[in-house]
Amino acid sequence: MSAALTPDPLDRYSRQVRFPALGEEGQRALMNSRVTLCGCGALGTVLANHLARAGVGHLRIIDRDFIETHNLQRQILFDEQDVADNLPKAEAAARKLRRINSTIEIEPVVTDIDHTNALALMGDADLILDGTDNFETRYLINDAAVKLGKPWIFGGVIGSEGQTMTILPGETPCLRCVIETAPPPGMTPTCETAGVLGPAVAIIASFEAVEAIKVLAGKKEALNRDLIMVDIWDWTFRQLKISGLFGKVDCPCCKHRKFEWLEGEMGSHTTALCGRNAVQVASRRPEPLQFPEMAERLKGVGEVRHNAFMLRFATEGYEFTVFPDGRAIIKGTNDIAKAKTLYSQFVGA
């Protein structure tokens, strides 16, 4: 037997190992690292794609949503078959990524990140990545990352512009130092109201990904310390200096270590999904829902179908997508109270 016949696990990464600033040592660090990716939509699919190909050893991909046709314009890991199969995003991404790189561990988690599960989902990670589309989850990630002392990377995109910053708790300003509060609903555009270009998302997510590689490979000196802003329509690139905010801002999170989002004082779990005419109703259950029994119960009142990941049910002009953990997305209303009523009527209290 010749040892030479055994392929070197580093071979598949040879083109990035040859990049001197990363090298073999950096590659081995990537292969031994764990990342928690929060959200697997537009930013998240680009991030997951980069990191899986780069050889990050363990990738936990968390997403609460399922795939719709209008996602395919920019969410690069999904295709029409995934829509037809009613797959949740985390599961579809994991299936695709396993075909891309079978040598790493990919752990899809279909859930809504909230104050009850954030620390458990992030506690074992070397790095946390923002692939979300809302500030509620970002402030929760920020609380968890600061509490755990773990680096995380923020990214946000709208239209043709985006922002990103790298947060090293105890060394750089945190998200709440820089953006003290999120704009109230209606005061800020969302991707649903203002649109979003795929290339803009891909650029911001790629910036996040290269920062991730630096963090995991231990190349801290090369990290971005600014708030980066890019607009690909009018060709602006700005590096706004934020490091002076560290310690200067009276930050409840990183200065006073008051974790309002993590303690559940801030944030709601039933939320209107802006611009989608849909509401997410969260109702955590100790046991997973039994879809075959539910389908049996609901088939007299509307059209119902299910797979292992979700049950979809349409009645009275509303469409319910129910997940095993009890969470549901109800299409056809923006009214939270109405959605809660519908949930208790058809899913159960």
Partner: peptide, 24 residues
Amino acid sequence: YLEDLETPVAEKDEVSIIPAVAGG
């Protein structure tokens, strides 16, 4: 980290209003 609204602005300076970008 300068002087908030009292921060001096010179003739050629540029003042930017930077909103948070929510989507993704």
